[in-house]
């Protein structure tokens, strides 16, 4: 007998086995930001079968989001992004416990929001806020999956407490990066989000090779993808 639930995940095949599917259903993931990266990340986490998703964003959709933010459409402009994400997850799979938080993340609320999750997914667009979140994850022992984009370029790293990537990646003074000049097209967020979600799945399933103490640097303009090892 094939249950309705296993039919949903049948095409995960041997890539994610039935036992592993159970592990995903028990995992608790927090997605910070429900815009370009966040929209794709939430879509993929929901389809993958994560059982608990907390989605956080204080912003509302506007017309300039339509070029890339998969959760935005002309009918929800002006609506909060986290609430839109919650509705979308429910539409994909009503069994997922999705908690939308329509707030901006800050030093004051970060610990409360990530506290009940195993993994924190970075879909933020402010480097100062990333620094706060990365620091909180270090302090609280949460796995932080860093992802950032600018134009044709992207970066992803998986950071556990005490990893050398933490001081290295967040020792900057900037608040915004090259995305101010280059913007963000439709495809870069999808690529970076895909790598972030694959890191999240592998972390929960404890399989494959992770981007711990390393960073993947993506250049879609020249088709160059490189994993840079960071020496301990």
């Amino acid at each position: 007998m094939t249950s309705r639930r296993s039919a949903r995940y049948m095409r995960n095949g041997d890539c994610i086995t039935e036992d592993e599917q159970q592990l995903l259903s028990r995992a608790r993931v927090c997605v910070l930001g429900c815009g370009g990266l966040g929209g794709y990340i939430i879509e993929m986490l929901a389809r993958a079968g994560f059982g608990y998703l907390k989605v956080v964003d204080g912003d509302v959709f506007d017309e300039s989001n339509l070029n890339r933010q998969i959760l935005s459409n002309p009918d929800n402009l002006g609506r909060n992004k986290a609430l839109a994400a919650g509705l979308h997850v429910q539409a994909i799979n009503s069994e997922i416990n999705c908690v939308p938080i329509p707030e901006y993340i800050s030093a004051d609320n970060v610990q409360a929001h990530i506290g009940d999750c195993d993994i924190v997914m970075d879909a933020l667009d402010d480097m100062a806020v990333r620094k706060i979140v990365a620091g909180a994850c270090q302090e609280m022992g949460k796995v932080y999956i860093y992802g950032a984009i600018a134009g044709w370029y992207g970066q992803v790293a998986t950071i556990h407490s005490g990893d050398v990537t933490y001081p290295l990646l967040f020792d900057y003074h900037q608040r915004r990066g090259e995305e101010v000049r280059l913007g963000n097209p439709s495809f870069t967020p999808a690529v970076v989000a895909g790598i972030e979600v694959s890191e999240c799945v592998k972390t929960i399933l404890n399989k494959g090779k992770s981007l711990r103490n390393s960073m993947i640097s993506i250049d879609l303009l020249n088709n160059e993808v490189e994993t840079i090892k960071i020496e301990v």
């Binding site: 930001g33 815009g35 370009g36 990266l37 966040g38 970075d122 879909a123 933020l124 667009d125 402010d126 480097m127 990333r130 992802g147 950032a148 984009i149 600018a150 370029y153 992207g154 970066q155 900057y172 900037q174 608040r175 915004r176 990066g177 090259e178 995305e179 963000n184 967020p189 640097s217 840079i228």
Partner: peptide, 10 residues
């Protein structure tokens, strides 16, 4: 020596 510009978008 490896140098990276700030990449901050999401």
């Amino acid at each position: 020596l490896a140098l990276f510009p700030p990449v901050g978008g999401g």
